[in-house]
Design a protein around this nucleic acid. Structure first.
Lengths: 249, 249
DNA sequence: CAAATGAAATCATATATATGAATTAAAATC
DNA sequence: GATTTTAATTCATATATATGATTTCATTTG
């Protein structure tokens, strides 16, 4: 049996993370379907400990204690410290922005972004979440994870259009995933941000499964004239990092 | 009354954030002085929800769910989004690294770092914690917070030497704080990192108290030849941000 | 390979928490 | 500024959880 109030604490964190402008007790209790009095007690505890705070309008927001906890969670990933130096070198050789992400339930979480001096506009940042179906990194997870895991995720996934090019047909998406599997890398052709073209590859860990994904992202045109070279460097880097974190396949 | 298992969840997060290499159930239960069976139940719940995970050696570590939560906590601070553009301009005018931090219990938490192209070596990063007594930002909090609050913090604070110049005498520290109060800014002269000189100033919020602190950090020599100009820009920026977040003093 | 350590799981019951109802406080509306 | 609406808080008790003891299983260490 799971501990009810422990689970509720997590649910409160989760919902508050989606409402950075804060929520009232009522709003939280309605959204999480729990009695106001219980919500009140939990929030009081969390507030006492600095894990939530109340803003000027008395609305509850996430507290500052969670900031170093999140950073620490990121750094406790072996892939993080082992991967960074490789990503730096990848950036230098391809001269485009590099991302690394891990899977968190049905979303990806960015854990690194290596900027170039010729910077690009992108909403992705370390610590941000994005859906799987519309990003190069996300499609990499889907393409290279276990078949049944993939199907389970796809079944509960809503394919909302983000840009004009977002793939919103499940069949089309599955066809792509099969292709990526064969190619050993994934492509995101402005499916998530206008003008942004990404190439992404899987990183495997000691459990022999996909553990993370890395990508090279840049303006479509600049990327396309060097696709071959970028893919080669990308896949090489992914192999090196995989080996570095214990993959032996 | 606070909710026991909710509080324990937070204690688990806290202790795991200090042991990025992971802890066993036993270690956690000993450190937090709670029964193993209770610890087991809580960890099972946290693991089910992705807030902790077990590494290859089965040790518990913070889970990936906490990463976006921490980022969101940072962004939910009004000072964050309001302050950043000002910090960017400050960096451009002084051409040194800029930091911003908030207070979290008895520590400071960095929430921004604006790099220059002439970069410096520093261990400080957004999301990291540092003690108050040995940093420019920390001493700013101590100097500009309410007197009784300061004394309470100083009483429970151990002044460990970090570098050769760290102030480890309480009297000496209090003398400094009084001086900083008068000056309107604080100085960290290699007290936390060799070679690093910082000037820091308080940011006040709508509650009329210190809400955050910002600093300019750079190599001692480079900083000292321009101290006056830097202090002027620093204080100007702090005033602007304070006004921006609702200070009316 | 024996011994020790640690993890996982189960259980009955003492203890802590969650709950709905009631009360108070705050905000919105007339 | 009275009235209504909505949110926050308190409280007694039904309900859920935490606990220590115990067992099993797995892994590590000597």
């Amino acid at each position: 049996m799971s501990v009810k109030s422990a689970k509720r604490v997590l649910e409160i964190f989760e919902v508050l993370s989606h409402y950075q402008q804060g929520l009232t007790i009522k709003e939280i209790s309605v959204k999480l379907e729990m009695p106001q009095s219980s919500t009140f007690n939990l929030l009081r505890t969390l507030k006492e400990e600095g894990y939530v705070r109340q803003d000027l309008q008395k609305k509850y927001r996430l507290g500052e204690k969670l900031i170093p906890i999140g950073t620490s969670a990121m750094e406790s990933l072996d892939i993080y410290s082992i991967g960074l130096p490789y990503l730096q070198r990848l950036m230098e050789s391809v001269q485009e922005t590099i991302f690394m992400a891990v899977l968190s339930e049905d979303e990806l979480v960015y854990i690194a972004k290596i900027d170039t001096n010729r910077s690009i506009r992108t909403t992705a940042q370390p610590g941000y979440r994005k859906p799987l179906y519309c990003t190069g990194l996300g499609k990499t997870f889907l393409a290279f994870m276990a078949e049944d895991n993939k199907n389970q995720l796809l079944n509960q996934m809503e394919l909302k259009p983000i840009t004009a090019r977002t793939v919103i047909e499940r069949n089309e998406l599955e066809k792509q995933l099969k292709l990526f599997q064969k190619l050993g890398y994934s492509i995101d052709d402005e499916e998530n941000e206008e003008g942004l073209y990404c190439l992404a590859a899987p990183i495997y860990g000691s459990n022999q499964g996909i553990t993370a994904a890395i990508s090279v992202a840049g303006p479509k045109q600049r990327m396309q004239v060097r696709t071959e070279m970028i893919i080669e460097e990308l896949k090489k880097t992914a192999r090196h990092i995989s080996k570095g974190i214990g993959y032996s396949g």
